[in-house]
C-alpha cells in the first residue's frame, strides 16, 4: 500500500483523552509495520501547540514522544523548498489554510499522494494529493467491522 502522511489529529484522537478506537487501530497497524507511514515536524508542532493551548504541555510532549516512537522516527523535516511549493499551491487555492498547503507540499515533495486526516474535505482542492477515507484504509488493511460503524 502507498505510504501515508498522518495528520496530527489522528494521534490526538487516539490519545487517552479522546481515545477513539478506530484511530488507535490504525496507529497499531502502523506500529506493527503493516501500514507504511510518515508525519512531518509541522504536525509534531501542532500536537505540542494543541496541548499547550489547553495547558497540558506535558501531556503533549508525551504524545509527541509516543507518536515519534510509533513511526520509528519517520518524521519529515520542513525545508524552505516545502514553503516554496506551498506558495505555488497557494496561488491556485488561496482559500485553503496555509498549514494544509504546507502539509500538501511536504507530501508532494516526498512523492506521497495519500494523507490520513479527519480534515479530508480540505484536501479535495489539491489535485496532487488525496485524503484516504477510514473505510478505504480499513479495507486496505483487511480490517472490517465495528471500527467502520463507529466512525460513520
Amino acid at each position: 500500500m502507498s505510504p501515508l502522511l498522518i495528520d496530527s489529529n489522528i494521534p490526538i484522537i487516539a490519545s487517552e483523552q479522546i481515545g477513539e478506537a478506530w484511530a488507535t487501530v490504525i496507529l497499531n497497524e502502523v506500529a506493527k509495520g503493516n501500514c507504511p507511514a510518515f508525519t512531518s515536524v509541522l504536525y509534531c508542532l501542532e500536537i505540542l501547540e494543541s496541548y499547550w493551548q489547553q495547558e497540558k504541555a506535558f501531556e503533549g510532549r508525551v504524545l509527541y514522544k509516543n507518536f515519534k516512537s510509533l513511526l520509528d522516527d519517520q518524521i519529515l523535516p520542513l525545508t524552505v523548498e516545502d514553503f516554496d511549493l506551498s506558495e505555488s499551491l497557494f496561488k491556485r487555492t488561496p482559500h485553503l489554510p496555509p498549514r494544509d498547503l504546507i502539509h500538501s507540499a511536504v507530501a508532494i515533495r516526498h512523492q506521497m499522494t495519500d494523507l490520513f486526516s479527519i480534515d479530508g474535505p480540505t484536501y479535495t482542492d489539491i489535485e496532487e494529493v488525496r485524503c484516504v477515507t477510514l473505510n478505504e484504509l480499513l479495507r486496505q488493511l483487511k480490517l472490517t467491522g465495528d471500527y467502520i460503524d463507529e466512525r460513520n
Binding site: V41, C44, L45, R61, Y64, K65, K68, D73, I75, P77, L78, T79, V80
Partner: peptide, 12 residues
C-alpha cells in the same frame, strides 16, 4: 534553516 526532528528533541 530547515526544521528537523532533532530540533524537537532539543526543544524537549
Amino acid at each position: 534553516e530547515a526544521v528537523t526532528v532533532a530540533d524537537f528533541d532539543q526543544s524537549y
